[in-house]
Design a binder for these strands. Structure first.
Lengths: 192, 192, 192, 192
DNA sequence: TATGAATGAGTGTTCATTCAT
DNA sequence: GATGAATGAACACTCATTCAT
């Protein structure tokens, strides 16, 4: 409380993230945001056209943040190592998994801006997903990984690993390591 | 006005399932249910005390359905084969994954019936989860599976595999087969 | 639509009082209040969290108003004269008698604020009631009044005299005077 | 539970009385009545046209019961003794005090039957009230009681004594005795 | 007589959104 | 920019009442 400096979009995003993590998508509404930020409810409309606009903009920042890290993965390392790096990035950006849910809920809204933005988001999301698939197939081509497995299945598995509750128990590093090891080598002790 | 063949709880569950799959938990409200079933909104209250009651009863039927199948898994087969059977069951009961989400959202409600029901549900859910963990550890004891992997991680992976969108693309049977193969043998072609 | 001079809590209390007197507790609902005040129903929720909150806040103002007057009764006058002053105050605050009823009806609500407020109200109500009993007993100790009568009965009689419909016919002053005279001297003409 | 014998109006009145005493007028509705009586809700409509009809009929039985006792008061005893008897009758028919409240709530209903019935009730209520006033004035004429007091005030006091909570504490007999003694002789120890 | 089934009207409550200052 | 005030649309829930069997 005690707002003096002008409100920024970043302030709003920060508050949004906090509510989202504590109470889920359902708990995010302008009344709560406004009181958390100690501004009038209507003030938020100076920054965002409507709720969808806010949520989509928030998600965009998440995506951008993540994409930035993904782009930093060195291009010369082997594809499976790239995928390991990607897995770690995905696991540290846990909020990402809410995007699916949000996009579904936003289906009902018809605003033009929103739908435009939504498409853009989807493109970003897909870009990363496609990159991942590309690396998987590269691993197969180089005969590092078996072709028996559907590459989309592996991709989905990596992408949805953010949902695993174990993340909270054993930590991101350990989870990434164990999970990736399992994907590569399996758990069976029988000789292949 | 046209009085028709008495509505049944099953009718309501069916409509609930449809909405749940199309629009998510958020989309389930009595207005929509009522219009879908072509009855008055208040009619639903003759069958269910309140919204929580409806949702929990619905989830209970899902759990019961699934538990029944789980109990039919033969006890004499090796634990990893049991786990494969379990995986297939979990994948065919895709709605199950909504239970976690629902339970969390229902935390806020204080109705006695609901909280009683909620606990019961949780117990059922946990029973299956614990059984799964037990089988995993049995597989490790019998030296079928490696101990390097956290058993909870494997469990979570199996349990959350319902979320994988590939299910719709390649079908339950194929998904189960590929996923389980990957869990056991991994995708790497390098010799261990 | 016509935006007017900001609504105040006092406006709402005034409307509440009017409805309460005309139609009783049962007649107070947000729809009626809103239409009486010529605002939207939801506007009231900007001022009061919920119905209980409104009713309890309203009662609190009544209690405060009355308690303030009670505290002004001079302490040096004899107890029976104090009681006469108290009777007059009670009779001019006719709405007070609704508090008992309301408190009973509000038992069913579980809101925290409400229950907190309710307790506070009850304490205020009891404070005045206890003060009254104390004065009655003082009157007995000083041998102004007979001990034959249960002091709680006298207290209840004074407290519930607000319910006497005669108040409207003969006016507060006259009612207080006659009633108090009867309590002190009775109506019988036979010598004791 | 376990209804075999045909339902009677008396059964319904009994259940109504019980709910009324336990939960107040607000708690009386057909759903609760039906479940308490173990009959279908709609069955009640075979016995009473609507809710008002039921409540008014119930009140009528109360009035009849009371009037019957009032008529048994011997006519040869002095008026103040009659009034004492009347006070005891009133105090044992505590439910009577709900009539006022009910009548007020029923104002809103327009049904012809109801309004006819309501008037009849009022007449009965008034009959007793008028009788009481008549006795009070007789007591004044015979110079048993002082004329200083408004006879309506005395009447109201007797009539509304049912509301005194002390009734539960010290019992009807004692309450009647103390109250009547106070009305006749007052509490003051000063010589008149 | 009895009832199962259905319902409409009404009430409490939430929340995104608008608008004048 | 900022905000206080107001609001409408939507949803949960209750209850008296009707109607076909």
């Amino acid at each position: 409380m005690g707002r003096k400096k002008a409100l920024t979009k970043e302030d709003v995003f920060k508050a949004t993230r906090e509510i989202l993590m504590k109470e889920g998508l359902h708990g995010v509404h302008f009344k709560k945001l406004a009181s958390k930020l100690d501004v009038g409810r209507s003030t938020l409309y100076e920054y965002f056209e409507n709720k969808d606009d806010l949520l989509l903009a928030y998600m965009k920042t998440l995506m951008d943040e993540m994409n930035e890290k993904v782009e930093k993965i060195p291009s010369q390392i082997p594809p499976n190592e790239k995928l390991y790096e990607l897995l770690k990035i995905i696991l540290t950006h846990a909020q990402i998994h809410q995007i699916d849910q949000m996009i579904r809920e936003l289906q009902s809204s018809n605003k033009q801006m929103a739908s435009f933005f939504r498409d853009e988001l989807h493109v970003d999301l897909m870009k990363t997903y496609d990159l991942m698939i590309q690396w998987i197939e590269e691993a197969m081509e180089r005969e590092l990984w078996s072709r028996e497995m559907d590459s989309n299945l592996i991709g989905d598995l990596l992408f949805h690993s953010i949902l695993l509750p174990s993340r909270n128990k054993i930590g991101v590093e350990e989870l990434a390591s164990q999970l990736f090891s399992m994907i590569e080598n399996g758990v069976s002790l029988k000789k292949k």
